[in-house]
Nucleic acid binder design. Sequence first.
RNA 1: GCUGUUGUAGCUCAGUGGUAGAGCACUCCCUUGGUAAGGGAGAGGUCCAGGGUUCGAGUCCCUGCAACAGCACCA
Length: 642
Amino acid sequence: MPAITLPDGSIRRFDGPVTGTTIAADIGPGLARAALAMKVDEVLVDLSREITADAAVTFVTRKDAMALEMIRHDCAHVLAEAVQALFPGTQVTIGPSIENGFYYDFATEVPFTTDDFPAIEAKMREIIARNAAFERSVLPREDAIAFFQDKGETYKAELIRDLPASETITLYRQGDWIDLCRGPHMRGTGDVGTAFKLMRTAGAYWRGDHRNRMLSRIYGTAWRDQKELDAHLHMLAEAEKRDHRRIGKDMGLFHIQEEATGSVFWHPKGWKLYRTAEDYMRRRLDAGGYQEVKTPQLVDRVLWEKSGHWEKFREHMFLARVEEEEKTLALKPMNCPGAVMIFNQGLRSYRELPLRLAEMGQCHRYEPSGALHGIMRVRAFQQDDAHIFCTEDQIAAETVRFVELLSAIYRDFGFAEFRVKFSDRPATRAGTDAVWDRAEGALRDACAIAKVDYTLNPGEGAFYGPKLEFVLRDAIGRDWQCGTLQVDFVLPERLDAEYVDVDGGRKRPVMLHRAILGSFERFLGIVIEQYAGRFPLWLSPVQVAVATIVSDADGYAQEFTAALQAAGISVKLDLTNQKINAKIREHSLQHVPVIAVVGRKEAEQRMVALRRLGGDAQELLPFADAIARLQAEATAPDLRTA
RNA sequence: GCUGUUGUAGCUCAGUGGUAGAGCACUCCCUUGGUAAGGGAGAGGUCCAGGGUUCGAGUCCCUGCAACAGCACCA
């Protein structure tokens, strides 16, 4: 006699085991039509599942966010059936729902291409129109393995073999097509609807391991209705518009070419942006108690052998040899050994600690070709690096200090929020458990003091110590790890760093590796996408465009331009023989934040009309006021007084 | 690195084995105008590179390079 409690608190009693379908029908025909699945005591199950005991039941309809996930999951099944119908001999593997859609990995001799999509989508529509019910069945493990093995589905058989013994093996049937699946599913294939689209193909390793066979993956997106699908496609188009590679080209910021893959040619405007960021960082670091240093690009392998990089990082290092010498040099992939070399000059005292050595360190790393991505993932980049030599007792205070600095800097660049990941001791590590306890404890305490919420990243720490990772999310929703703070007990040991303690004895310092932007290249890529190229005034490479309406105003425009330049503002003077409309349009497309328009009237009255990017209002100001106003607005956030 | 796709004017892209195209940008001329495209003319090409098939290759085939998407990688 199950008593079913509904979300509104009402209770319905049934004579015996009852399915969701029956309950929904009992409540009303509207719900019977709308219900796709149900939650029984908070567990999502098929509508057709029998309920035998008292339970709280909530129905899932198309309106619920949860329906979206089911639509995508079901759509993946429909995709798999369609593919197997069209391409006999193709094996199915896995096909989950993911953010915004789903994918399915197939084992096939000939990989799929987007040319296959129209046929596959047509077949999918057929399957959806047929609206075969999803039917769940439970099979003993050995039977299930035999079933898939007989069908030639070796990947499915392998999956079942590897499922934990406690797991119930369930199959789902839709018409004649059967898949191994945990479920749950909606009522039938028709519930998927028609708001889906296959997006792209890709290779993907079986079980995500590059030693395994490459499968052919098809990505799709699916939504509750056409309107949602259209909105999603529109969002993708918008995201593409703010792609930093697109904007970099359109605004003439930088380029990359074949002869130097993974390295950036910064154009004047791009380099201006870079320098603005760099100058800002220098001021922040100076104010933050850091001393800047510079260490060599080319360093003998002997040092890399000592530091451990030769062993652990060699395949990522660019080597350089010269005919005349036996030596092998390497372009530095990291700055840390260089910093230790500076620390090691002379005898250090505990009085000098914490010693914060910053370096705008140019690094080269041989990244796999497939990893390169615009200026975000490159082979030559500059880090805003620093190494803090301190005692164990100073770790917490230095961490708090660092997080404060990092927060202020991210805020100034327009990132109000960031995530923090705490990576603790990995399985293979250097140092005793006692040392790890202290290092992790110090970091945890510091996070508490600095009021930093973090998610634990178990076992992901560096072999030499725990670390914090600071992650920003870009405009296209990708996560980028920018900042990092790593506690290192190993490198000071390997490179023999030491200081004289109060008692006159020699001690090893702890080394904190830390970066805030990470790499300038990557960070600026993120900033470009964050602002879609419409930078705040202080960052904008061209801050003001001075545009004339008539050539009679040229002299006055030149005078105003010179005054802006003298005030430290980056300005572009436009005396071209074009109508003001065309000039406005051109500079607006270049995302110049302020256009100062001068015509005959302004020249006679010694005024300027300021026009802001994105607006059409004009502000008429006297010459000197305009200069003062723009100068104040263009001031970097760390230099503002008010 | 792996799988797939792509590579034509500065940019965005058409191009069916038979004389290389468009729009925008660029240069020049006309136009001096009031807040997102004034008009006209002109110039601009190793069709990614190298092989092959063919009477003939931008087009078909092979190899390489690069970019893009994803996977793996990001110590």
